[in-house]
Design a protein around this nucleic acid. Structure first.
Lengths: 225, 225
DNA sequence: GACTTTAGTCGCAAATTGTGACTAATTCGC
DNA sequence: GCGAATTAGTCACAATTTGCGACTAAAGTC
């Protein structure tokens, strides 16, 4: 192997970003047209620059593809397996970013693809997409993931549909709202939205309240090899 | 910045490993005496070699420090912030590894330090240790973390004490056993251990059973910013 | 005005969890 | 040999949480 500095690039690694949004009834990921082969697509990426932190680079990559910074971004990890599509860097550090709704219109050459139908990718970037989905699932109960995929104000039905999308599982309306209440995560605004047919829904905003400590015991559930 | 290839090293990144074991009543981490400054300690690490996967390198690093491979190892992420102690690599990929009990005796120049009293480290490696602890906590309910810190056979009291250590929280004996039962994670052996004073305890082994799907709803609990 | 559609709430049976008290099997001191 | 001390293991029940069907509310449609 050792395809080290053959390209003359000064940077040894890239930063790649998996940007996720909720597009209608499914999740979507942002892809960029490849600069070398205009027929192919890849995740947005950049070669790292000395002196810039990984987090800063990831935000910059996202901003350049979208014209907007993600509402939330987190590192997934380092990927080295397989040849990489856009660059021949030894190693790539991947991030997941969440974009509220579709407020941001991608810059030219960038497009949202539904997760169920993404374009062919290099093995390395395919692994990143996989990792991004797992990270989102894993953070769902610990970080405000769902709220970062919605506009600042939303109805509880929208929130529930999003949770159902992320969990791939139907939820009972009453139970969902009760749990939400208990967690003190949202507060009602004094606005209502009439969506055409049916009773208008009250709009809520994400507004987490403080939490008393010591709550629940071990959960062996989800556990398994 | 740009302290790139000044050292003439051919490799652009390192793989560092945080090896964790349960030492008596607290967790411990393995450190290696620095090759340049014999007074200082660092996490075990290696410069990456072309053609070897990150996972393979991490296992190799662990094996060279311990003479044994970890019972479980997982990538924490990439770290680039700050200057690095042992090498001047731009970027380091960190792993957490779990070592069952203290079965493995560290190779010369390597020593276990209690987590509550670790030696001075470079900022980058300090962040890795921090990340390792968070990863362990996060995986506790999803991967057999606790079981990988115990010998193949153990008493339920030992298991409970370990969980209490990892959760930094006391657990009620009856509840703990009930949850364990419900999760079908252990099975009794026909051996017993007499620990001196008190009734002898039955030995168990980790033996997870199949799991029927669809179980529990959303948990907004732990959630918070 | 009756029917449909979506929002939002109530209440109760069923399941799960927290906890103290109880029984069992040893060692230790005398 | 015997009671106190110590650790393992279980039970039972109150308190809490969850699943879910049924209900009321506020629109639009025809």
């Amino acid at each position: 192997m050792m395809r080290d500095r053959s390209s003359g690039k000064s940077s040894s690694h890239t930063v790649d970003v998996v940007l996720v949004t909720a597009m209608g009834a499914e999740l979507a990921i942002l892809f960029t047209r490849s600069t070398t082969d205009r027929e192919r697509w890849s995740l947005p990426w950049k070669a790292a620059q000395g002196g810039e932190s990984l987090d800063a680079t990831s935000t910059r990559v996202a901003h350049e593809a979208l014209g907007e910074s993600p509402a939330w971004i987190e590192q997934i990890g380092a990927f080295a397996e397989g040849k990489r599509h856009p660059s021949d860097a030894d190693i790539s550090v991947a991030f997941v970013g969440l974009i509220p709704h579709e407020t941001a219109s991608p810059r030219p050459g960038n497009t949202w693809f539904p997760v169920t139908n993404i374009p062919p990718l290099s093995p390395r970037q395919r692994a990143m997409v996989e990792g991004a989905m797992q990270t989102i699932q894993a953070r769902l109960d610990h970080a405000p993931v769902a709220f970062r995929l919605l506009p600042p104000t939303f109805t509880l039905s929208e929130l529930q549909h999003l949770y159902e999308l992320l969990l791939t599982k139907r939820l009972h309306k009453a139970s969902f709202r009760r749990a939400l209440q208990a967690a003190s995560l949202v507060e009602p605004t004094d606005e209502w939205r009439s969506e055409g047919r049916g009773r208008p829904a009250q709009l809520y905003r994400y507004a987490p309240k403080k939490r008393r400590r010591g709550h629940r015991g071990v959960r062996f559930d989800l556990l398994h090899p």
